[in-house]
Structure formats: structure tokens, C-alpha cells
């Protein structure tokens, strides 16, 4: 389990990283923490000609409040987000979700944007992005564009990022007054990719539920005036819309079961903690 050969660009600025992507003809991979990509490299599942290391790009290593969102630079690590002082108050959903994300040791190195780029359907950060209706900032030598989570996340480990683009930042919207949040998941072991993860946002008469691990990408749905009476029916419909697949650890049916049952749990919890 050793990686194949590749040329390595140790970028010192965003511009250098973008230039490297642009010159590589489509087979370059960005990495910062490498917590997903390096494992795939070692398994020889991924085979880029060029690796572009942005872990030293200090201008991408930041967390900053931009309007009503937290903007997270491409090189910012998960542990930096976890220790961001405003997390519990301003981003309660992330505050609840991040402890489920990998482990102490992988959060030390893994980045938020790396997780979004990898776009594992069971991963917590893409689910929170979808649920909170956050956005990503993509930049290439051709220019910059901002995509909503829904436009960015396309499918199984597949995003709208073009080969020459770098996710320079992700933006997670802050809690608004009156909103309540809840997150839970079932993973077989602590830190594993979730079999199913659910995230709920409740605000006034609007309820939003995001689900990871069932469909090919994290998927969220809104309801207005969702009452306890029709909650089960709505969750069942949503579960069936998401579908799900069998794998060696869990059936599609079980995943739908979790949407129905944990969905109810987090929706009730999110409603209860609206403030």
C-alpha cells in the first residue's frame, strides 16, 4: 500500500495552486490534510499525475465572519473550526455534528473544504452545508464563482467543481433568531462514516431536515407547518424519495428506518430548542 508516483507542488499561495491546477491538464488533485485522499492514494484507488499541497498556503488558513456566515478557508482544519469560539452559539448544528466527524487525530489535520470536496454522502460537513444552505467559493485562473450546496453537491463523491478549480472557501450561515437545531447519526463505531445522519433546523413554522448516508448525496427537505400528526407520513415519503442502497453493514431499508425514526427525533429536538 504505497502511492504511485506523482509530481508534487507545494503551493505557497492560492495563485500558485491555481496555476498548478490549470497547467496539469485535468489530472491534478488538491490536498491539504489528505485524510481522505492520502488513504486512497495508498490504496492506489486515486492516481493523479500531480498533487498540489495547499497546507502551507497561509492565506487559505482562516475562519472569518463574513456577514451572516462563517467563511472557512481551504486550509483551515477541522480542529480549528471545533475550537472557534463562536461555534456553539452561532453554528450550533456544526457544534453538534463535528464531534462525530472522524477522530481527534484526523480532525487535527483534516480540513473542512477537503471534506466538502471529497463529498462522501455519509459525511457530516457536507450534510451540514446542505442542511444550512451554505455555499462554496470555487476559484480557478478563469475566475471565481459561488455555488450553493445544492448546486455544488451532485452525487456520490461527485461535485460541480471543475478540474482546474479550487474550493477556496466554504460558508456556513449563522443561526438566526428563533432557529433550533439538532443532529444525530448512527455509525457502527465512533468516528465512522455514518450509516445515516440527520440534521434538523426548525424556525417558526418551517422545518428542514437534512439526511446523509441514504441518497448519493446529502439531501435536505423543507416543510411548512409540519404537524405531529403528519410527521410520520412525511418522513416515510422522504425516506422513500431518498431510496438508499444496501451495503455490507446496513440495508437500504434500515437507512429508511433511521430517516423515519431519527428524523422524528431531531425534528422534535430542533423544535424544542428554538430560541
Amino acid at each position: 500500500m504505497k502511492p504511485r508516483k506523482f509530481d508534487l507542488v507545494r503551493a505557497e499561495s492560492t495563485a500558485e495552486a491555481l496555476a498548478a491546477l490549470s497547467e496539469s491538464g485535468g489530472n491534478a488533485k488538491i490536498f491539504a490534510g489528505g485524510q481522505s485522499l492520502m488513504a486512497m492514494m495508498n490504496l492506489r484507488l486515486a492516481d493523479p499525475d500531480v498533487m498540489v499541497d495547499i497546507s502551507q498556503v497561509t492565506e487559505l488558513s482562516y475562519l472569518k465572519e463574513v456577514g451572516d456566515k462563517l467563511e472557512i478557508g481551504a486550509a483551515a482544519t477541522q480542529v480549528e473550526l471545533l475550537s472557534w469560539p463562536g461555534l456553539a452559539e452561532k453554528l450550533p448544528l456544526l457544534h453538534q455534528a463535528i464531534p462525530h466527524l472522524g477522530h481527534f487525530q484526523t480532525r487535527n489535520r483534516g480540513t473542512i473544504c477537503g471534506s466538502l470536496a471529497h463529498s462522501d454522502p455519509s459525511s457530516e460537513l457536507p450534510l451540514c452545508l446542505a442542511t444550512l444552505e451554505g455555499e462554496v467559493v470555487l476559484r480557478s485562473v478563469r475566475g471565481e464563482r459561488v455555488l450553493s450546496a445544492a448546486d455544488f453537491q451532485l452525487g456520490m463523491m461527485t461535485t460541480a467543481r471543475e478540474d482546474d478549480e479550487l474550493i477556496v472557501a466554504a460558508r456556513y450561515p449563522f443561526k438566526k433568531p428563533g432557529e433550533g437545531f439538532a443532529f444525530t447519526e448512527v455509525a457502527q463505531r465512533r468516528g465512522d462514516f455514518a450509516i445515516t445522519a440527520v440534521a434538523a433546523v426548525a424556525s417558526g413554522d418551517v422545518t428542514r431536515l437534512g439526511v446523509g448516508g441514504v441518497a448519493d448525496k446529502p439531501t435536505a427537505k423543507n416543510w411548512t407547518n409540519l404537524s405531529d400528526d403528519n410527521l410520520d407520513e412525511e418522513l416515510n415519503a422522504f425516506a422513500w424519495e431518498l431510496g438508499g442502497s444496501d451495503d455490507i453493514h446496513a440495508t437500504a431499508k434500515y437507512r429508511r428506518e433511521l430517516v423515519r425514526r431519527l428524523g422524528r427525533r431531531v425534528i422534535e429536538e430542533a423544535k424544542a430548542c428554538r430560541s
Partner: peptide, 13 residues
């Protein structure tokens, strides 16, 4: 000072 996986890190890093 931060605990990390050395198998997911390149030596040159």
C-alpha cells in the same frame, strides 16, 4: 505538537 497519522502524510511535508 499535533497528533497526526504519519501514513497519511508525505515525508516532504
Amino acid at each position: 505538537g499535533k497528533a497526526q497519522r504519519s501514513c497519511l502524510t508525505l515525508a516532504v511535508q
